[in-house]
């Protein structure tokens, strides 16, 4: 899918200080029945966000108007479990463009980048710093620069670098995707296929 370019982002944050947030929480399997990539944001964190009678659970962060923004900050091992891209899709569709955690599950990380979401892995200490800043002042902002590969807490100036390989960085900054790249090397792939007795 072609997506918006990601160069930098300055935003308030939504904190979710829970570890091992799995993709079944991000979007439960019963909401995977669409044949289009639309509307998943409504069911983001469905069972944490709504009661069985569909009334909002007031203690869940997405239902707390104090918190908002384009950056979701999650605990360690964010996105574990199923390969469902719908999880990244729901996060994007809800309006997030960046997820910050101290550790991401592999498949989720790939899916996020393929959706145009920037996953930013920070140190555990920096993650704690972010959570405590939000707790003190929910209007605190983060600035994420993909160009410089830095993440900065604006109120304190505290900053970390994050990793991103130059291929994926180029894709995100230009809104390219892997399918464009693969299509451009189709003859090379066809030649290679001849060597595989499949």
């Amino acid at each position: 899918m072609a997506y918006d370019k990601f160069i930098s982002l300055k935003s308030t944050m939504v904190p979710l200080p829970i570890e091992n947030v799995d993709t079944d929480q991000i979007i439960p399997a019963r909401f995977l029945k669409a044949t289009k990539r639309e509307g998943f944001g409504d069911n983001l964190f469905r069972d944490w966000r709504y009661n069985p009678d569909n009334t909002p659970k007031e203690d869940f962060v997405l239902n707390n108007s104090v918190y908002s923004g384009k950056i979701l900050v999650g605990g360690r091992n964010f996105g574990s479990g199923s390969s469902r891209e719908h999880a990244a899709c729901a996060i994007y569709d809800y309006g997030f463009r960046c997820v910050v955690s101290s550790f991401f599950a592999d498949i989720f990380k790939n899916n996020a980048i393929n959706m145009g979401i920037l996953p930013v892995q920070v140190s555990p200490g920096f993650l704690d710093e972010i959570f405590s800043i939000i707790e003190k002042d929910p209007s605190s902002e983060l600035e994420v620069s993909l160009t410089d590969q830095t993440i900065t807490i604006l109120s304190t100036g505290s900053r970390e670098n994050f990793e991103m390989n130059s291929y994926k960085k180029n894709n995100l900054m230009n809104g390219f995707d892997d399918i464009d790249y693969l299509q451009s090397m189709k003859s090379e792939i066809l030649e290679f296929a001849k060597t595989r007795a499949i």
């Binding site: 899918m1 990539r37 199923s82 390969s83 469902r84 891209e85 719908h86 990244a88 498949i107 790939n110 899916n111 393929n114 959706m115 995707d177 892997d178 399918i179």
Partner: peptide
């Protein structure tokens, strides 16, 4: 396992 973009 792969995501849907990768299926494509």
């Amino acid at each position: 396992g792969i995501g849907t973009s990768e299926v494509e």
